[in-house]
């Protein structure tokens, strides 16, 4: 499965488009991670727990999008876009969407 965020795949020809596919995850914060975040809040610096959280949810969202594309019979997703938002206090949503296509 090819993934790109350009309209076309360089060096490949798009033969058929299937429409928009998307995947999303909503993740809540972890209590333990939140305590560490509180400490980091005084000293500043990277919140590793949250970075990991973000990464995991992003991978999960991509996985869901890929599954949807595969179901349609596509072998690539072009024009992929990410979008993050906070749904409620302490919960973050990652939404990824793109156009499922066939390439050769």
């Amino acid at each position: 499965m090819f993934l790109t965020n350009t309209e076309e795949i360089p060096g490949k020809q798009i033969t058929r488009a299937y429409g928009v596919v998307s995947g999303s995850t909503v993740r809540a914060k972890h209590a333990g991670r939140d305590i560490m975040a509180g400490v980091k809040n005084i000293f500043g610096g990277e919140l590793k727990g949250y970075t990991e959280l973000l990464q995991e949810s992003r991978d999960e969202a991509i996985k869901r999008m890929k599954a949807q594309a595969r179901q349609l019979g596509a072998n690539a997703v072009v024009n992929v876009r990410f979008s993050t938002s906070s749904v409620a206090a302490g919960a973050a949503e990652i939404y990824v969407y793109g156009t499922a296509v066939s390439v050769e």
């Binding site: 790109t4 965020n5 975040a37 980091k40 919140l47 970075t51 990464q55 992003r58």
Partner: peptide, 13 residues
């Protein structure tokens, strides 16, 4: 080609 991503969360002191 492939999709490359990177992310970080940083807090202010």
């Amino acid at each position: 080609v492939r999709l490359a991503t990177g992310s970080v969360v940083i807090s202010v002191d």
